[in-house]
């Protein structure tokens, strides 16, 4: 029997994620991939995987999986801070743990942050689609959202080097997003641009893998009319008709017709992935 993970508790929204699929945006294919990319890379490193191996990304409530068909496998839970147990007994968060065959590894509900990452030696190896094993929730490409009872195949593990304690970034108390103005900042009034970079926003409950939505003052446009559809980059801050800026995350649509006032550099988006609803958000002007 080939090694795999049996999903005991899928949690609110758990998906398989790797680096995502780039090079297909011109066909309308979103990038997908783990929202907290540094957490995904670190988790993989700790279990001896290549940084682009596929891991599990949980949302808020964690998940639990049972190992089957392998003598044992090295695993780690990182990203969002949470209680971690192995067959019900506490084990350290953020530190590799040996999971024996038949044992259940559980990431509990997130205490700090939003999305925990579970990496397993050998990585998850569901069938890739367009070169990636990432689930894309906008278009439905890649492996489906986990459900209880699912079985996910694991790849062959590599020797796992020993690691000392490693630093994991914490979830942001305040999400500071450096904003590069454009391409459509001229569609907004000067007052709106001042508001964007000075006002207090909060992470909305309606945020998801497609975008981090905000609550706060609406931004007024300086011109009416429709913007003909144009390409959108990861981190684009789009302003829909309700005026509340929305930061596009990995499952964002590839083209869109609402003006993009600015772009948050990719490096700042890992913190956005861990910002729970209600977290204060500040947009600051990035130095070019």
């Amino acid at each position: 029997m080939s090694p795999g993970l049996h999903v005991v508790r899928a949690g609110a929204l758990t998906t398989v994620q790797d680096e995502g699929r780039t090079g297909w945006a011109h066909l309308g294919v979103p990038r997908a991939g783990a929202l907290d990319a540094p957490a995904r890379r670190l988790a993989n490193r700790l279990v001896g995987n290549a940084p682009d191996a596929a891991v599990l990304e949980t949302t808020h409530t964690g998940c639990a999986v049972r190992l089957s068909g392998a003598r044992s496998v090295t695993a780690v839970v990182g990203g969002a801070g949470c209680r971690v147990t192995l067959d019900g007994r506490p084990v350290a968060w953020g530190v590799p743990v040996r999971v024996p065959d038949g044992a259940v590894l559980e990431a509990g509900p997130a205490v700090h942050g939003l999305r925990a990452y579970l990496a397993f030696g050998g990585g998850l190896v569901p069938e890739p689609v367009l070169g990636s094993r990432s689930a894309d929730l906008l278009s439905g490409l890649g492996p489906p959202v986990l459900r209880d009872g699912d079985v996910l195949p694991l790849g062959p593990a590599r020797p796992c080097p020993a690691h000392g304690a490693v630093p994991w970034p914490g979830a942001p108390a305040e999400l500071v997003l450096p904003l590069h103005p454009g391409p459509r900042d001229t569609w907004f009034t000067p007052a709106a641009l001042r508001t964007l970079t000075t006002a207090a926003y909060r992470v909305s409950e309606r945020s998801n893998r497609i975008g981090l939505r905000t609550e706060g003052p609406a931004l007024r446009r300086s011109r009416d009319g429709e913007l003909p559809s144009e390409g959108i980059v990861l981190g684009a801050v789009q302003v829909p008709p309700d005026g509340r800026p929305l930061v596009f995350l990995n499952d964002h649509p590839t083209t869109g017709g609402y003006p993009v006032v600015g772009v948050v550099a990719e490096a700042a988006l890992a913190a956005a992935a861990q910002a729970v609803p209600g977290t204060p958000v500040r947009f600051v002007v990035a130095r070019p």
Partner: peptide, 14 residues
Amino acid sequence: VREIVPGARTVLLD
């Protein structure tokens, strides 16, 4: 350049 995305009157280079 990893993405070249045409739009209605634009082309995006990422």
